[in-house]
């Protein structure tokens, strides 16, 4: 996993509540057995005017000029501003894979769906929960200011806008540690293999039928 420390990244506002994982990456792209290459199909049905299929070359597909991420001013965006319950729906990890592959490394929203939220961390993306008022302010500032960049610092857990407006965010120490160091969670967990084995022995003694 890629480490994340801090960025000063261009923000793009996606002004819709309850954006679901089918919208983030439509199901036809779930047929891949790979982890990479989903970026060109991020928000496929909103981004393009034709129907996308896996393996398609997207460079010449007709783009929907009204879709926010197609606007020239948001090209190269790294911070996605979103509304409440972002990422609801399925557990498909293709959603954060697509978001990461597209180039986003931070998402800011009033709330995220649960599974999507934890999937994001595992792919080096930082999801930041901020109050609806703060997010609303970021949306307004972002839409009003071309080239609006947010400074996101994981070490200090702060976000600072060009206007000087800033706020802090929460993250569990474990997630922060993994993200800052780009650590593989499995390797970390296996450091506790003895604990797992000990637990397993006790568990089996109490509920042997679970191990039949």
């Amino acid at each position: 996993m890629k480490a994340f420390t801090k960025i000063n990244g261009l923000a793009a506002p996606l002004d819709r509540a309850n954006v679901d994982t089918d919208a983030i990456i439509p199901k036809q792209f779930l047929k891949s057995i790979k982890r990479s290459g989903f970026g060109p199909y991020l928000f496929d049905e909103w981004r393009y005017l034709d129907h996308g299929e896996p393996g398609m070359d997207c460079t010449n597909r007709p783009k929907n000029p009204d879709f926010v991420l197609n606007k020239p001013r948001y090209q190269g965006a790294q911070v996605l501003l979103a509304r409440e319950n972002f990422g609801c729906g399925s557990s498909r990890e293709h959603a954060p894979w697509a978001i990461e592959d597209f180039g986003f490394s931070v998402m800011i929203a009033p709330s995220f769906a649960d599974i999507f939220f934890s999937n994001s961390y595992k792919n080096g993306i930082l999801p930041i929960v901020a109050s609806a008022e703060i997010v609303d302010r970021l949306f307004k500032e972002c839409e009003a200011t071309e080239g609006y960049k947010l400074n996101v610092d994981l070490e200090t857990q702060t976000v600072t806008a060009p206007s000087g407006f800033g706020f802090g965010f929460d993250i569990t120490p474990h997630r922060k540690h993994c993200l800052l160091n780009g650590l593989d969670e499995i390797g970390l967990t296996l450091m506790h293999a003895d604990d797992i084995k000990a637990f397993e022995t006790g568990h089996k003694a109490v509920q042997p039928w679970l191990f039949a």
């Binding site: 557990s91 498909r92 990890e93 934890s118 999937n119 595992k122 967990t189």
Partner: peptide, 15 residues
């Protein structure tokens, strides 16, 4: 319900 990274985590660690 879990994501694919977690599927791998559970396969490898049972946790």
């Amino acid at each position: 319900g879990i994501g694919t990274s977690e599927v791998e985590h559970v396969l490898a660690t049972q946790t």
